[in-house]
Design a binder for these strands. Structure first.
Lengths: 203, 203, 203, 203
DNA sequence: TATGAATGAGTCTTCATTCAT
DNA sequence: AATGAATGAAGACTCATTCAT
């Protein structure tokens, strides 16, 4: 791969804006269902000018993915650095995850719906980072089982349950919605952790 | 809408086979990413003949949706007819749902990824049935809360958690996979119902 | 490469006509200078229908190349089978070559001007066959030198001189032109073979 | 046409360098196959700056043509001034021509491949100078026939043979190649002039 | 002199669909 | 029932060129 050529701060700012705007459009009409012309309209740019910023449609899609993935990976790092019991760490991870989902509803929609549209290296890179995050969750759960805090079960399966419960909120969790991310996270943590715990804090 | 033309049994059988085969292709390449030519190849049919059976690409997509939705709605009816405590009914619902997901992995993938591609009446009809199913789950949960079996919480939120946990399995639950649908369902039920229950069966 | 799917005789005929018509357009405006739209006009076909026959613009270009290359290779085979002295064989080769150039002026123009536009396997295949032909000429010249009929010289260099003299006629040799291919070939043979011969038949 | 604006010596020097560098790129990728961006890269200049020097892409192409044509025309003048027998003049013309082809392989490639891309006045001007050169060769040959040095033949046809033999070397004659321009020219002269001569120097 | 953002017509190609056979 | 030729709008993307800075 040729090294990405250096760009002016103006260019970088503008590109970021385009990535965010386009995420909204992709979330509404789907990646394949959105034409370049539609993106041009939304970004108030001619085709040539748009391509000046995005390189290609798929590169734009990858940028949207990265925008979320960067945050998700960073949240996993914060959780790891924060330490605490598995219960505390899983609670924090859920809180951070739902916060991202609520703050980037469009990006996350794209992320969870359109990842099969990534190809080649971009797809590989994306899968790698996704797996990395999932493993960080699985590590917490495995630790909890090992310590006896969580009941004996297949950690991968429990992880998948947790991920499903949390990720699936992308369909309805919105910044201006009925539930706040933090409230939902708290309730989910209660349900899920009580469900897997050996002692039940609530009682 | 014009009443559906009566068709020969042969036609119906062949159409069903085409719907199933096409689900596989859509799951692999996406609805927009799949061309009619590819469907023709997969079904070993010329374009004219294919259209003889499918009417249009979107009608084919709708048929794939219906194939799953019919099963899902029917499972909800079975659950209702079976009766029992909320705990029992929720367990059964999860078992049936995962069974469908495992038996129709391609259809379900399409169902959960490509529903935004449906337009007009077809989209409305689909949303209506989907909501209907979700309400049947919510009713069980609300009943459990009312009866005191489940702890006090927003039933909609709990429903969404349950749906996320179960629906999300479409990403990894396969007929030939490591976990059977029934096993997964049992474990999910344990976790989830323990998580929301007021008394904990495990203790 | 996937095996070319079988085509109806109608399709094959029509395709051949398209190849020939398009050669004329490419010869006039150049390969890169000709748009698909222009080809559609010339062939009285819509874009979709044109692609039904050509596969891609470059495949069309390759078909034009093949049309000539097939003839050229066949002419080399005829020369070989005809036998005779090097002088006779070289004369015959020139006669056959100019005949092809005169009969396919457009194809040959494309062949000699646009071969760098071929890529990948097609380019390799083309270079291979071209070299094959050049070697058949070089073999004749080398035989003449060895037998003493032609004077001592670098056979490759003499071959290149011969090829230049003959190929370059594509710029002016036309079926309806001032000179016939056969006349030109006869005069070229006289000049060239006298130029390299050790005895001069004319005297 | 407006009179060419007067330019600083710096500008002229830089432009010449750009013309030569661009010839290399055009020779590699073709005129239509080369984008302005590629020329900018090769010349290490932004688009605006490049246009400051070249005016337009076609003007750049014309400059490449002129670079060669100027030399070719000048060589014809030198041949004329040098005088001598037709045989001597033709030998000298071949030597000069191959020298140019070997020294400007890229320019000549462009010259011989891309001249159809010139339009309007530029195309007319180019054709005029090209014809001028060809006539100077034809004049030598006609003189040789008239004087009896060359055998009776259509001078135009003999000229075309000579031009083909020499011009066609652009495909393989390179400064660092196996054959030097001077050697090739000498051998070509021997072959060609012996081929058309009435007496044969070799005997 | 030089930059690079912007234009918008143009590139080749694919699309879902129709229809005569 | 089935074929495959035809349509023409739309697909993503590149082009040569201009111009404010």
């Amino acid at each position: 791969m040729a090294p990405a050529k250096p760009r002016s701060p103006n260019w970088v700012t503008r590109r970021q804006a385009i990535v965010d705007t386009s995420a909204r459009i992709f979330a509404k009409s789907g990646y394949h269902g959105t034409g370049i012309a539609e993106l041009c309209d939304a970004n108030e740019l001619g085709k040539g000018a748009l391509y000046h910023y995005i390189g290609s449609k798929e590169e734009l899609l990858a940028a949207i993915h990265d925008r979320v993935m960067d945050e998700v990976i960073r949240s996993a790092e914060r959780v790891e650095q924060a330490g605490g019991t598995p219960r505390q760490r899983l609670t924090m991870a859920g809180d951070e995850l739902l916060d991202i989902i609520a703050r980037y509803p469009d990006h996350v929609w794209v992320f969870l719906h359109e990842f099969p549209a990534l190809t080649g290296d971009r797809a590989a890179q994306f899968r790698k980072r996704r797996r990395e995050y999932e493993r960080s969750i699985e590590a917490i759960i495995a630790a909890g089982i090992k310590s006896g805090e969580f009941r004996k079960a297949n950690p991968r399966l429990i992880t998948l349950a947790w991920l499903g419960m949390h990720n699936y909120t992308y369909l309805w969790l919105k910044p201006e919605g009925k539930f706040t991310a933090h409230d939902v996270a708290k309730q989910f943590a209660t349900v899920f952790i009580d469900g897997i715990a050996t002692d039940h804090g609530a009682e």
